[in-house]
Write a protein that binds this DNA or RNA. Structure first.
Lengths: 252, 252
DNA sequence: CAGTGGTCTAGACCACTGA
DNA sequence: CAGTGGTCTAGACCACTGC
């Protein structure tokens, strides 16, 4: 019996499923750690490691003295949902669509060169795409890839699916992302692609994605129709991990 | 020698300080776990618990086979920065200001009653405040408190500091928050308080804050000038904790 | 009071990395 | 190869909850 996953990951998935399936009903107490140790045969440390994962996801709350209680399950969000419009849509049973407006290889603009930690004049691959959800225009995506990664895209029909799924199959491992969120008025391009007046408020997310060894791979400027999508974040006092940085800007 | 904090918390703070002070220079390898065990005298499990905290904060990256490397320190963000404009400003050496426009006790509006899990007709306390950063208008805040918490505010000069600091001193323990982010055009009130035209794009954050035992305490609708503040989030593939939910909205 | 989770220890085996 | 972090175990003591 091959076991590719660590035991604590398997247990965490098992527990997540019990919550999703209502085996551990929302609002009630979950079984005690001692009980889970008896049931699973794993040691307490391993059981705790699994439970802690659910805690930081907000699926379990409380503790100290009484069994933790189960919260109503928010849809599980994996990292790929952060960076892939397609995977996000699919996770909700929606259909993501895309139309490539432009794809170009060119010298990296100065502002982006700094973000991507590239020397001046380095070549990059840039895309402009309109994204749809169930056929309705929802987002305008302006993405810049470092050259060696972007070259994979020329072997790929960019109108036919998820760029990130394609890159993953090529061995590109995205591991970390920084997302900066603000609001902008629609420019001419946004307005045309989203079917709204120029100046309409849009929710903008700028994202820098890195590999496991911290090399910047991709920068994207995505502008959403707020009537079509919003972001939400959960965070807790115990847990510093859900980091929402509120950055002051000098007056634009 | 009283030790109020758990050892792993003390160690984590120590390690964070070493990164901030450059004792562990950014970009270089941190000491191995074995080394830290020798140095601190703590067991490996405890050292790992401390290091894992820094990992999920994004201060350390990498692993398996080689020592983790240190990333340039993002400013440490505690939970209080999420929910308190004042504490956020202070953490950056800025000065937060506020002007109370309105404070009222009234029946809870229907949309909010659901969010706050209150029976229909329940009384709440509502505030409308203009917030400034270094004297410049930056945000308009519409906050609703459940009654027993809101009553604390009548014993408090709301023009003179942080509401959350005041509530904390009254024994109200905020523990968890859900933040929903989108973009809206400024309405008449926003426009007047922020000094921009009606329709100007604003970054809106709606927040529901809960106590440790999951009781909703406060709901707020905060609208920022994007030229004055943006949000950013860090997340990783290993770690599900930084949850960014991208929620579809039916057309408004 | 008994049961719970929070903390801490000591020791073990493995997979992976880099010289 | 030796050293690293990833995983897992077994057992211990404590602070806190609820009865």
């Amino acid at each position: 019996m091959a076991r590719l996953e660590p035991l604590h990951v398997t247990l965490a998935e098992d527990f997540r499923r019990r919550i999703a399936d209502g085996v551990w009903p929302a609002g009630e107490s979950a079984p005690s750690e001692a009980e889970l140790v008896r049931e699973t045969g794993a040691s307490r440390g391993t059981v705790r490691q699994a439970l802690n994962a659910l805690r930081t996801e907000g699926l379990l709350v409380g503790g100290q003295g009484r069994s933790p209680r189960v919260r109503k399950a928010p849809p599980a969000q994996s990292f790929s949902h952060f960076i892939s419009f397609t995977q996000w849509a699919e996770s909700m049973g929606r259909v993501a669509g895309q139309r490539l407006e432009e794809m170009a290889r060119r010298a990296c603009p100065a502002e982006l060169a700094e973000e991507l930690e590239l020397p001046p004049g380095e070549q990059v691959v840039q895309l402009l795409r309109q994204r749809t959800l169930d056929g309705v225009p929802t987002m305008v995506e302006r993405t810049t890839f470092v050259l060696d990664v972007g070259l994979h895209l020329f072997t790929f029909d960019t109108n036919s699916g998820s760029i990130f799924a394609h890159l993953a199959s090529q061995g590109v491992d995205l591991a970390r992302g920084r997302h900066t969120i603000d609001a902008v008025g629609a420019d001419q391009t946004d307005a045309a692609l989203l079917g709204v007046p120029v100046g309409e408020p849009l929710l903008r997310v700028r994202r820098l994605t890195r590999t496991r060894d911290d090399r910047p791979i991709e920068y994207s400027d995505d502008r959403y129709l707020p009537s079509r999508a919003t972001f939400s974040i959960e965070n807790t006092a115990e847990n510093r991990s859900a980091m929402l940085h509120l950055n002051p800007q000098e007056s634009a």
